[in-house]
Simulated assay, not measured.
Amino acid sequence: MDKNQLGIQYMEEGKWEEAATVFMEAIEEKPEDPTSYINFGNVLSVVGETEKALKFYEKAIKLDENAAAAYYSAGNLLYDLQNFQEAKKMFETAMKKGMESGDNYFMLGLSLIAMEQGKLALPYLQRSTELNENDAEALFQYGLCLAQENFIDESIIQLKKCTQIDPNHADAYYNLGVAYGFKEEEKQALQYFEKALEIQPDHLLAGYGKKLIEKGTAE
């Protein structure tokens, strides 16, 4: 096992110091290999050393301008810092450099949503669900974005897929309740609000939705 593989194993085990040590050794042994800089940057990002992490991603890009993983990792970091415009640029560049991953499309979509460009986000979120068919969160965000753009029936399909993969996704059930409420199918809406509350009894929005439906049917 080479040092980058060993370092990734340490990261998976939550052994950040060991991972950092191994990646630094890998950089010293092969200073022209961008992979080690990306991996070390990922460790720094996890432990909150964001500025240092960005410098390591920049170093990787200087060594190899086609290092798609460096753009993707930098994008994730910038997204967490709520610098959505720059994050979007990084995810777009990763895509142009050949990164055909569901995660990259997903994060590009989320960046666009954060910038209130939901319609532009839809194709990227759709692609993320095609590449990661069993990713409940990707299906949820795609369904949510569809609903926000008034594609209610399409939204329901994606939210139901989400609950099939993650039967405890309270927010997906809540948004199904909202969608059926929008369609004036109160019985279905009530069932989904109740399901959300069954999973998460303190789900305030689901509780409010349930009260509205009950009040409406009682009148």
Rank of each mutant, 00 (worst) to 15 (best):
E86C: 05
I8K: 06
K55F: 12
K52W: 10
E12L: 00
N66G: 08
Y10H: 06
E49F: 13
Y37A: 02
E65Q: 11
T50H: 15
Y37F: 14
N39F: 06
V22C: 01
S36W: 04
K15E: 05
G41H: 07
N76P: 03
S73Y: 07
Y72R: 09
G41N: 11
Q82P: 06
S73H: 12
N76C: 06
E25D: 10
I8T: 04
I27M: 00
Q9C: 04
N76F: 09
A67P: 09
A69H: 10
L78H: 13
A70Y: 05
E32V: 10
N66K: 15
P31E: 10
K52E: 11
E58Y: 12
E32C: 08
P31M: 11
G41S: 09
G48P: 03
L78E: 12
F56I: 06
A74V: 02
M11N: 01
G41F: 07
A74S: 14
E12M: 02
E17Y: 02
T50F: 15
S73R: 10
E29N: 06
S73E: 10
A74Y: 06
G41L: 05
A70V: 01
E51D: 15
L44Y: 06
E18C: 01
V22M: 01
I8G: 04
F40S: 00
Y79W: 09
